[in-house]
């Protein structure tokens, strides 16, 4: 994972509530075996409408998206995060996120910043004409005005993002602990191992 510390720039004021992952990237784009190139399909149904915020010239290449409640609900498809990255989005601000999406965002170095609705409303207003800054280190969102909105972030995720850590690499270092767990499990719940053997014996 690449290091992430601070993101500054224009923010697309989408504002919509319950933006589901089918809206972020429709299913017909999921037939790929790659993580690349999904930006073309990102927010396809929204972008078909004339005057949609994604295609306003000012927001070309904007790194931040501002949305409503429950962003990323629905499917577990990580293609949603890949599609957003591919169109240049590296942060989303919303009052709440679905659990699976916020995990997928984090794994791809996308900041999912939760702020109360009234602060999101203020940012939606500011974003029309001005840039926004998200400072992960200090956990604060600022505008060119006096706004300073503090946000919460999972300490482990913050640590991984700031240091660009690879979770799988970290877990592989815990191999001894995993082996200990597996041995204890094999003693107490032995039927959990090798279910494929049961299948062969049933046959």
């Amino acid at each position: 994972m690449e290091q992430v510390s601070s993101i500054s720039g224009r923010a697309i004021p989408l504002g919509l509530k319950n933006v589901d992952t089918d809206v972020i990237i429709p299913a017909h784009w999921l037939k790929t075996v790659s993580r690349e190139g999904l930006g073309k399909g990102a927010f396809e149904t929204i972008r078909q409408a004339p005057g949609n915020p994604f295609d306003v010239e000012d927001f070309a290449g904007a790194p931040i998206l501002i949305a409503g409640d429950n962003f990323g609900c629905g499917s577990s498809r990580e293609h949603a995060a890949w599609a957003m990255l591919d169109m240049g989005l590296t942060a989303v601000i919303a009052p709440s996120f679905s659990d699976i999406f916020s995990g997928n965002a984090f794994k791809n170095g996308i900041l999912a910043v939760e702020l109360p609705q009234e602060q999101v409303d203020r940012l939606l207003e500011v974003a029309k004409d001005h840039p926004i800054t998200i400072d992960l280190e200090n956990q604060v969102v600022t505008t060119p005005f006096q706004d300073r909105f503090a946000f919460e972030v999972d300490p482990f995720r913050k640590h991984c993002l700031l240091n660009g850590l690879d979770e799988i690499g970290l877990t592989l270092e815990r191999d001894a602990a995993i082996e200990t767990h597996e041995r204890a499990r094999a003693d107490s719940l032995p039927w959990l191992d090798a279910p494929t053997r049961n299948r062969r014996e049933h046959a």
């Binding site: 498809r77 979770e167 877990t171 592989l172």
Partner: peptide, 14 residues
């Protein structure tokens, strides 16, 4: 449900 990065994590580490 999990995302693809988590699928990879489970495949590699269980």
């Amino acid at each position: 449900g999990i995302g693809t990065s988590e699928v990879e994590h489970v495949l590699a580490t269980q």
